[in-house]
Design a protein around this nucleic acid. Structure first.
Lengths: 97, 97
DNA sequence: TTATTTACTTTGTATTTCAAAGTACTTTTA
DNA sequence: TAAAAGTACTTTGAAATACAAAGTAAATAA
């Protein structure tokens, strides 16, 4: 069974959502993620941290005018790992039909 | 985003694996699950318990000859919930391609 | 009869998840 | 311009979950 191809980090639906959002949007901010995923600040922050610690996303801190601006982007490794995960999921689903 | 259609219970890959195995096999035992999922006894037991508490699987205890035999089966509710989950996953994946 | 194996269950710790409160600004209002 | 409110996170600690090791009870083998 290809459960072993699934990545533990992407088990959680919030992290799945973050990765999806980053793959299609290429540079996303905290507020956007918070709204789209409908999670609390602390919860979102901790999932982002997990993804960052695993080098699946990178955090870019800068300014827009004089306001701090943080954007989250997917890394190469993150994209690769996530796509492998999705492929494994797809296979699992396919085998059920 | 359809993360909200994902079921928290099916987040974990071991439970995803259990449900998949039950959907295609219709009546499965502890040993089989343990081997196919490659988990420890205690770990498997606790995931089975979670699924049972949520009424997604049912446990049938009986005998084969004089040996106890336990089989795990998916319930109607479990099948329904799992299929909804898979549909949501499929949608997510589709939207990324 | 004793030892071993099988099929789980129990137990306790480690890890993860989560929301509330905190911080360090910036912006608005009086 | 001083105080109040808002924004964008971070920190903290408790609650929930995951996990492996040890335990148990029955069957089978030696």
């Amino acid at each position: 069974m290809n459960i072993h191809k699934l990545n533990k980090i992407f088990d959680h639906r919030v992290r799945l959502g973050i990765m999806s959002a980053l793959l299609v949007n290429d540079g996303v901010n905290f507020k956007f993620l918070k709204e789209v995923l409908d999670v609390t600040d602390g919860n979102l922050a901790s999932h982002l941290k997990t993804l960052e610690e695993n080098k699946f996303i990178k955090v870019e801190k800068g300014f827009i005018g004089r306001k701090t601006n943080t954007t989250y982007k997917v890394t190469r490794a993150g994209e690769k790992a996530f796509k492998l995960h999705l492929t494994a999921l797809e296979q699992m689903i396919k085998n059920l039909q």
